[in-house]
Design a binder for these strands. Sequence first.
DNA 1: TACGTTCATGCTGCAAAGTTACAAAAAGAC
DNA 2: GTCTTTTTGTAACTTTGCAGCATGAACGTA
Lengths: 126, 126
Amino acid sequence: MKSELKKTLRQKGLRCTEPRRCIVEALEKGPKTHAELLHLTGLDRVTVYRNLILLQQVGLVYRVYLPGHEPLFVLCEKEGGGFHAHFFCEKCRKGVCLPADTIQIVEPWAKQVDKVLLLGRCLHCA
Amino acid sequence: MKSELKKTLRQKGLRCTEPRRCIVEALEKGPKTHAELLHLTGLDRVTVYRNLILLQQVGLVYRVYLPGHEPLFVLCEKEGGGFHAHFFCEKCRKGVCLPADTIQIVEPWAKQVDKVLLLGRCLHCA
DNA sequence: TACGTTCATGCTGCAAAGTTACAAAAAGAC
DNA sequence: GTCTTTTTGTAACTTTGCAGCATGAACGTA
């Protein structure tokens, strides 16, 4: 996992640093708010902000906003795994990546779409 | 339109107030940031914050976050129109509601999903 | 393995965003 | 109109996020 992370980051011109590993490691256990990441990693506020932006830009992390709550940062399981959908459970607040063929979009929209976010209740919480 | 808004709000136990009408009216002309809504409506900051949260919770408004930009608030064209998908163009920053049958999700996920957000380039911007 | 370049981190301080509490005003039912 | 309940606006406050800069760490090269 660690060497995989390094490879992914290097491909995007980013270095594999201790703080970045910490953040990804924390997110592997589930979505977290910025405050939770601060507390869990003990890193500087600013460092967490900056790295979350970078990790989002390279597609390793996405952000979910539920009205009335702090934004959550979710680790994408398929680093650079091409087109797929993100499912997020509004109750237990966990995220899953669904394979591309889980969802079909009719033309002409299919060609236009490049990111998919699905919200709902997971099988457990339904 | 106005009486329809009132009905929708009342169904959710919310009152139809002047500030709420103003916000919805401003959003009818296209997605807006919080700052733009402030400026357009002349309302108090706090009132706009609170109402945007409420309008999101009742499903009249949804929020789109593009990394590196301020969050945009988009009016949903089908108030309470049942299940459908939101398509948002990352370039021209307009939102459209797509009918339910535009997207098909395989079981068991179909039953779990209750909100869909698609990001991409619209037919014009592609 | 040591070296040097380049990028990342952690400060500090600052502006903007967002929250809380509460009295006054407006909405809606009668 | 009157009464009850929800909303609003104001003010004080907390949090979020950004810019600049010196120190320290990553990593390609020899």
